[in-house]
Amino acid sequence: MRRAQVQVQFTWIFSLFAGALILLFFITFILRQKDVSERGLSAEVSAKLDAVLTLAQSSLQTSNNVTIPGDLGFDCTGFVYGGARRPYGNALVFAPGLIQGKLLITYADGWDVPYRASNLLYLTSPRVRYIFLNNSETVHSLFEAMPDAATKQSVEWNITLMASIMPRNDDYVRIILGASSSTLPSYLPGLDALSPEEVGVLGVSRSVSETDAFTVTFYTRNPGAPVMYSPGEVFGVVGEEMALAAVYSSAELFNCTYSRALDHLEHITAVYYQRSRDLLASYRGPGTCAQLYGAAGSSLSAIRREAQRPPTLMSAEAIAANMTALADANQRLKLFSCPTVY
C-alpha cells in the first residue's frame, strides 16, 4: 500500500479512538453527575422530612398529612429515603417498618408518667389499615385516640361481623384486640389469604391492678397452621400513649424504641428527682409540703430504678403505682400552694 493510503486508514482509526475516548469521558461524567445529583436530592428530601418530623413532634395532638416523594423506611434510630439514611437522634418515632405511597400521616402526643417524659411521634399511611376488634374498653379507647385521618375501623366482637372483614388492597392490616390467648381472631377467614408480611395482630390489655400499665402482645402469623396466630413478643408498657405506640409499630421497632423511651424516662426522672430534692432543701414553709417533697422524691427514685429494668408487666405496674403516688403528692402540693414537682 502506498503511504497516503496508510495515513488515511490511520487517521480513521485515530479519529475512532479519539471519538470513543471523548464519548467515554462524557458518559462517565454524566453518570457521575446523575449519581451525585440523586444522592444530593435524597439528602435534601431527607433533611426536609427531618424538619417536618421535628415540627410534627412538637405539635401535640394534631394530625398532619404530609406529602412524601416516595417510600420511607423506618428503623429504631432513623429513616431511609432513596438510599439516604437520616438519624432522628433521640426522637421516639413509632411507625411501620415501611411506609409506601405519597402520603404520610403524623400525630404526636405527650407521654405523661405523670410528668411529661417525652413527646411520641406516630407515623402511618392511609394504605395501612387498622381494625379494632372491640372486645374491651382499652381497645375502644385506643380506637378513639387514633386520629381520624388514619384508615381505622372498629368492629364489634361478633363472629358474623368479623367474618365479613375482607382485604382491600392495603399495604398492611393491623388487627387490635383486647389480648388474651383465648380471644385470638381465628374467626377472620377473610384475611386468611394475606401473607404474614401483610397482616399482624396486636393484643392490648390493661393491668388487672387498674393502673396505667398495659400488656402488649405482638402475635405472629402462622400460615397454614391450625392456630393461625401465636403470641410473639410481649411487653409491659406504661401509659395509654405507649400502648397506642405499639399499634403503629412492628414488634422489632417497638422493642427498640420502647427501650430508648425507658432510657429517656430514666434520665428525665433523674432531673425531676434532683428538682424535688432542691425544692425540699430550700423549702421553709409548712412541714406538710416538706413531707410531700420527700414522698415525691421516693416515687421518682422508684420510677428511675424500674425504668432501668427490662420492660415486663411487673416493672410497668411498679412504675404506674409510683406514678399514682407522685400525682397525688403533686396535687396536694398544689392544694397547699407550694411549688409543684412537675
Binding site: 410528668y115 411529661r116 432531673v271 428527682y273 434532683q274 428538682r275 432542691d278 409543684t340 412537675y342
Partner: peptide
Amino acid sequence: FPELQCSVSNVIQENCVDQLKASAMSSL
C-alpha cells in the same frame, strides 16, 4: 424539651426554662 420546660401539673408554659430543671440537667 420536658427536661427544661416550665410546667405546673403538666400544663406547659411556652418559651420558658425552669431554672431548677436546667440546673438538675446540668449536674446530671
